[in-house]
Structure formats: C-alpha cells, structure tokens
Amino acid sequence: MSAPAPDLAIDVRGVTKRFGGRAVVNGIDLQVRRGEIYGFLGPNGSGKTTFIRMLCGLLTPDAGAGTCLGYDVRRQQDEIKRHVGYMTQRFSYYEDLSIRENLDFIARVYDVPDRRRAVDRSLERLGLGKRSRQLAGELSGGWKQRLALAACLIHEPQLLLLDEPTAGVDPKARRDFWDEIHRLAGEGLTVLITTHYMDEAERCHRLAYLAYGNLLTRGTVAEVVRDARLTTWTVTGPELARIGRVLRGQAGVDQVVAFGNTLHVSGRDAAALDAVIGGVVDDAHTWTRGSASLEDVFISLMDTARDNFA
C-alpha cells in the first residue's frame, strides 16, 4: 500500500469513468482533508454521483488511482465500504420496513457492536424516537432524509459521502441538517457532500465544481470567487428585463442573470464591463459594483464549460 498522507481522507488522481465511450468523469484529482466538509457542485449530469460511486467501490474507475481513508480505491473496496457511510441520491432504504427495522438491518450488516444501544442512540440523536415504528415508505421527504443520515452513521464511519442529501427538504430541516453535519465534522468526521444550493455551498470548508465530467475549480469559497476574476454590477429598479436585453451581448458583458428583483451583470474584463455600464447607467435604478457571488461564479463556469466541453 502506498503510504497515504495521514491527514487526507480522500486522495485520488486522474479518476475517469466512461459510459458508452463518453467520459462521464474525466481525470479528476481530489484531495479532501480529514475533518473537512467538502462541497461537490456541478450541474445535472456533470458526474458527481458517478464520482462518488467510484470512491466507495460501487463502480470501478476506468483510469486513475488513489486512496480513500488510506485504502486503495481499486483493490480495497471491502475495507472502504466498512468505514464509509454513503447516502444515495435516491432514498434507498426499505420502504416496507419500519425506521427501527431499517436501522437494525444496517447495524447488523455492518456488525455494529452492542447493536440495540447503537440503534436506540441513533434514533434518539436524530429525533426519530417517537416514529421508530413507522414504515419508512410512509415518511415525508424530510424524515426519509433523517432516516438515511441516521442509517449511514450507525456504523460510525470515518467518511460520509452524501449525494444531494437535502434535495426536496424544507429550509428549517436543511439548516438542522447542516448543523448536524458541522457537529459531526467537529468530531473528526470527513464529509463529501453534493448540493445544488448556494447557501449550502457556502457552509462547506472547501468545494469543487464539476461540469461535463471535468473539475473546473476548487478551493474555499473566497478562493473560488477570487480565482474566477469576475466583476459584477448589481442593478435594482424597474424594467430590469429591458436593461438585461440592452446589456446582453455587449463586449465586456459575459453574463446577465436575473435574481428576483435584481440583475447581476458580470464580466471577466473589469474595465470593459465598467465602460459598458457607464454607457447605460441611469437614475431610475440603483447600480452597485462589487465582486461576484458564488452563484455568479458558478453560472460563469458552467457557460465556459459548455463552450469548452459540450
């Protein structure tokens, strides 16, 4: 076994997966430190789920190598499975078993010591105690998500792979979920989490952005925003659609995105953008120049990726 850096929970290089000749995951390098919450972002079909499945031994990479918790991702899949908690994108527990039965099954499969106590503790910690006899199939989306999290924590994994755990979950439940994730990370657990929500991305220690199977950027939120070198003007006021039509397509304006009652006008060439804005600026609107938000950055990355890879 290659000596892995002990502080890296995930350390893979050049990971590639092809489906029918198309590289769905294309030579991705990823290093995640222990105890870190790592966000994994990217548009639909960018290969996030496929990448995670390779990390936990569900798919064999066509190329690339590396370690997960120090175990070789190609050869030591059994060891990896024992120490990783994987929450699938689609709810994948037994709908015809009760919450307790599901947890009990998973605990048995992982051969958890003192199983009864472990199940009780996990029910209690996730506030599932009163519902433990309810069938999983009858639960609402938010409760299903809690059950799934409880189940993938029951064997006390060192690494959590969470694939869009908060899709379809209400804001309050999402906040509770993230508080829990941070608490777990505080205890030393490493978390790799995919999401489409910007507020969640901002709660990650570091993140990576994927499009068409390629890793486009990574780092802390600040690093990602800084590296994008994007200048953004925020416009508020009436008739934003008309202003958008005027600005779109002008040299120096790379993207115009409507966010409710504001318009974000961004460009990589700050001077050119300022010149264009200078031509249309008026008193009816509030014009503010600032740095781009994470979302502006991602939209810009997605657009460039479409030009380069699609």
């Binding site: 569900l58 990783v84 699938t88 527990y93 499969v109 992982y110």
Partner: peptide, 13 residues
C-alpha cells in the same frame, strides 16, 4: 428496481 440495491452494494455484504 426499488433502488435499495445501491445501498446494499455499498455495505460490506
């Protein structure tokens, strides 16, 4: 069909 296979495969079974 129900998607529980993915979970089962991810365990050491």
């Amino acid at each position: 069909e129900r998607g529980t296979m993915e979970n089962l495969l991810a365990t050491p079974v």
